[in-house]
Every structure is written in C-alpha cells, then in structure tokens.
C-alpha cells in the first residue's frame, strides 16, 4: 500500500458516500444513470469473488464488502425507494455494446484461463467503460446538479490516483500489470472532458453546463 493507492481508494469511497448522500438528501436519483450503477455492481461482484478464497488484508476485505454492498444499496435506492425519480427514458446507452466486447477481451487477455481470472479481467475492462452510460446521459441533458459533478470528480480521481501508484509499484516492486494499467489509463482518459468542465466551471462556482 502506498499513498497514491490510499488516496485513490479514499476518493472511491468518498464518491460512493457523496452519491448516497445526494440521493438521500434530495430524495431523488435524478441525473444518475441506473445502467452505470448496475455495471458497477457487475464489476464488483465479478472482481471480488476472491473474497471467498483469498485473504489480502482486513482493509482489503472491508473495502470489498463495502463496495459490493453499497453498490447494491444504490440500485435498491434507484429501483425501489426513489423509483419515481429515476427516468429510464434518458438513460439510453446500449450497455450490450460494453458487455460484449469486455467479455471477448477478457477471453483473450487474462493471466490464467480459469473462471475467476477471466472474470477478474472482465471486471477490469468493464470498470474502465462503466461510466459511459452516465457520461452519455450528462451529454444528452447538457447539465448536472453540482453534487452529481462532485460524485463524478471523486470517481474519476480514484483511477487517476492509481496511475502514479502503478508507476511507484514498478519502481519499488518491479511489477507491471498490463491489463490493469491499460484499462486504468483508458478509464481515466474518459473523464478528461468532464474534468475540464468541472475545473473551469464547477470549481469556479458556476453550474455544470455543457455548451449547446
């Protein structure tokens, strides 16, 4: 564990707490893509199967349990508790275009041809693009509540922090994980447009609005 990874994980943790806080306080999941949230559940469940057979640390264990349970809780909030505030008609990204290619990539690129290792690869690839339905929705509506942009910024910062972590691990432990690094760079790159507007508008006190 190094500081970059710790900051990344804390940022990830913060993003989920911000999202839950936004839904609870506004009593609405307006502006949040259910598809992206459902993809995150898929990501966490397929990656953290090792909870059952591999012990890393107490920290690692609790974080995994938290990510699986909180992402399921968010689906519950969106589909049950605040269902009327969820508008599927603007959440129109076709996720089969993400799931299919990620499954094929995982069958080609993995470290061992076992069910859990292929699912691990799949989860890494899927995570890198899971935000697309959310960004697509943002692009369509052209605006977002400020709290939603804080959620996205924290979520984007999470994988961005992992990049210096991998560089650090390359120097100190001499290991490189090409699957995680490539996907992580793609994942972070997808946020660049968003970050530009976030830094130039939201952090200057303006509303998040995309040019028409």
């Amino acid at each position: 564990m190094n500081l970059f990874r710790l900051f990344g994980d804390m940022s990830h943790l913060a993003s989920i707490l911000i999202l839950v806080h936004k839904i609870q306080t506004t009593r609405s999941c307006r502006g949040i893509s259910f598809k992206t949230q459902a993809l995150y559940v898929t990501v966490f469940v397929s990656r953290y199967l090792d909870l059952f057979y591999d012990w890393v640390s107490l920290y690692n264990f609790f974080m995994k349990v938290f990510f699986i349970s909180s992402s399921c809780y968010i689906l519950y909030l969106m589909k049950m508790k605040f269902r009327p505030t969820n508008d599927p008609s603007i959440d129109t990204f076709r996720i089969e275009y993400l799931l299919g290619p990620c499954a094929i990539l995982a069958l080609i690129f993995h470290y061992k041809f076992t069910v859990t290792e292929v699912l691990w690869s799949f989860s890494i690839f899927l995570e890198s693009v899971a935000i697309l339905p959310q960004l697509f929705m943002l692009q369509r509506t052209g605006e977002a509540e400020t709290i939603t942009t804080h959620y996205l910024a924290a979520l984007g910062a999470y994988r961005a922090f992992y990049i210096p972590n991998w560089i650090y691990r390359y120097w100190t432990e001499d290991i490189v994980d090409p699957i995680a690094v490539t996907s992580g760079i793609v994942q972070t790159a997808l946020y660049l447009d968003f970050f530009y507007v976030y830094f130039t508008k939201v952090l200057q006190g303006q509303k998040f609005e995309l040019p028409a």
Binding site: H12, D54, V56, N60, Y162, R169, Y170, I175, D177, P178
Partner: peptide, 10 residues
C-alpha cells in the same frame, strides 16, 4: 521486469 497481476488492489 516482472509481469504480474495486481490482485491485492481494489
């Protein structure tokens, strides 16, 4: 350089 997976990460 060892190519290895980072299964200890989240």
């Amino acid at each position: 350089t060892g190519s290895g997976s980072v299964h200890d990460e989240l």
